[in-house]
Amino acid sequence: MRIVEVIGRVTLSRAHPSLLGARFPIVRPMPLAALRDGAPDRGEELVAYDRLGVDVGGLVGLSEGGEAANPFGKTLTPVDAYCACLIDRISF
């Protein structure tokens, strides 16, 4: 799981039936230096699947790859990145 910052949102006019009702935030990975010291270096942006209601500027725990499909059980869902948790606070 990686910590990412929500920087935007994707709007779909059509979606796969298994994705209806979800939101798709644009997120950017936050390396340790960015979290601890506010360093400007960030990772490459990606689009994630969200049912938690994340907001722009919020921090999220992101699951990727095979782990991202686990919340759906045996239902085949075309998801490669999943917002797994909302992060309120980080302490070092």
Score class of each variant (00 low, 15 high):
residue 75 T to Y: 05
residue 12 L to E: 04
residue 2 R to S: 09
residue 40 P to F: 06
residue 91 S to E: 07
residue 82 Y to D: 01
residue 4 V to I: 07
residue 27 V to K: 03
residue 90 I to C: 12
residue 22 A to E: 05
residue 1 M to S: 11
residue 15 A to V: 12
residue 45 E to Q: 15
residue 80 D to G: 00
residue 28 R to M: 14
residue 80 D to L: 01
residue 63 S to M: 09
residue 4 V to C: 15
residue 51 R to L: 12
residue 46 L to E: 00
residue 69 A to H: 02
residue 66 G to Q: 03
residue 29 P to W: 14
residue 56 V to A: 13
residue 85 C to E: 15
residue 5 E to G: 04
residue 37 D to C: 11
residue 40 P to Y: 13
residue 5 E to F: 00
residue 39 A to W: 07
residue 11 T to F: 10
residue 25 P to T: 09
residue 68 A to P: 00
residue 80 D to A: 02
residue 83 C to D: 00
residue 7 I to T: 12
residue 42 R to Q: 07
residue 50 D to L: 02
residue 51 R to F: 02
residue 89 R to Y: 12
residue 45 E to V: 10
residue 16 H to Q: 12
residue 55 D to Q: 08
residue 18 S to C: 10
residue 92 F to Q: 06
residue 20 L to P: 03
residue 84 A to R: 11
residue 39 A to V: 15
residue 37 D to R: 15
residue 52 L to D: 01
residue 92 F to R: 13
residue 62 L to E: 00
residue 20 L to V: 11
residue 48 A to I: 01
residue 73 G to L: 08
residue 30 M to G: 11
residue 2 R to F: 05
residue 14 R to D: 07
residue 35 L to H: 08
residue 49 Y to L: 00
residue 92 F to M: 12
residue 28 R to I: 15
residue 21 G to C: 13
residue 46 L to I: 07
residue 49 Y to S: 00
residue 3 I to S: 03
residue 15 A to H: 12
residue 25 P to E: 13
residue 37 D to A: 14
residue 5 E to T: 05
residue 76 L to F: 10
